[in-house]
Simulated scan of single mutants.
Amino acid sequence: MKMTLICCLGLLTLPIAAHAIDAGPASPQQQETEGWLQLQSRNKAASTKQQTSTATERELSMQRWLKSYEHEIPQFFDQDEGGKVDSGSGG
């Protein structure tokens, strides 16, 4: 009985915890990002110019997309398979 009561009280506090997490951006950078995301999702900053692509651009885009399927996705990533990182002085 006690365990059921504790579980029910815990479930009742979940919305409060979720609200606390979504209280708002913590830093100015996060506020700026949130502002841009809201503009985008609300369609407030859409361009007035119609964005179009030519038939050639669409064809090249489709070819590039189809070509991406030519490479097999490996079962796992082996860190030793990749190249070496040059930690030299650069240039």
Results as ranks from 00 to 15, higher is better:
residue 24 G to S: 04
residue 53 S to T: 12
residue 48 T to M: 10
residue 48 T to I: 11
residue 26 A to Q: 15
residue 44 K to M: 09
residue 24 G to R: 02
residue 28 P to L: 00
residue 20 A to S: 07
residue 33 T to Q: 15
residue 67 K to V: 08
residue 31 Q to T: 12
residue 25 P to W: 00
residue 27 S to F: 02
residue 41 S to D: 03
residue 50 Q to A: 15
residue 43 N to P: 01
residue 50 Q to W: 03
residue 19 H to N: 11
residue 54 T to M: 01
residue 43 N to R: 09
residue 41 S to R: 05
residue 51 Q to M: 07
residue 34 E to W: 06
residue 31 Q to P: 04
residue 32 E to G: 07
residue 39 L to G: 11
residue 51 Q to T: 08
residue 28 P to Y: 00
residue 21 I to H: 14
residue 37 L to V: 10
residue 42 R to D: 11
residue 59 E to C: 08
residue 43 N to V: 05
residue 37 L to M: 10
residue 47 S to T: 08
residue 63 Q to L: 15
residue 42 R to W: 04
residue 41 S to G: 04
residue 42 R to Y: 09
residue 65 W to F: 11
residue 31 Q to V: 12
residue 66 L to C: 04
residue 36 W to G: 00
residue 39 L to Q: 14
residue 36 W to H: 05
residue 33 T to H: 09
residue 63 Q to G: 10
residue 36 W to S: 00
residue 38 Q to F: 03
residue 65 W to T: 05
residue 26 A to K: 15
residue 42 R to N: 14
residue 31 Q to C: 06
residue 19 H to D: 06
residue 28 P to T: 01
residue 54 T to C: 01
residue 53 S to V: 13
residue 25 P to D: 01
residue 26 A to W: 10
residue 62 M to R: 13
residue 50 Q to G: 04
residue 47 S to V: 03
residue 63 Q to P: 03
residue 64 R to Q: 06
residue 59 E to Q: 12
residue 44 K to S: 07
residue 44 K to A: 10
residue 61 S to Q: 09
residue 67 K to L: 06
residue 26 A to S: 15
residue 62 M to F: 08
residue 25 P to V: 01
residue 20 A to Q: 06
residue 62 M to G: 06
residue 31 Q to H: 14
residue 66 L to W: 02
residue 33 T to L: 13
residue 63 Q to R: 15
residue 54 T to I: 00
residue 23 A to G: 10
residue 28 P to C: 01
residue 23 A to W: 07
residue 21 I to R: 13
residue 36 W to K: 12
residue 35 G to C: 10
residue 33 T to C: 07
residue 19 H to E: 07
residue 67 K to N: 11
residue 56 T to M: 09
residue 49 K to I: 03
residue 64 R to A: 12
residue 37 L to C: 06
residue 59 E to Y: 14
residue 44 K to V: 08
residue 47 S to F: 01
residue 40 Q to Y: 15
residue 31 Q to K: 15
residue 22 D to T: 14
residue 30 Q to M: 09
residue 21 I to F: 15
residue 44 K to W: 10
residue 21 I to S: 09
residue 45 A to K: 03
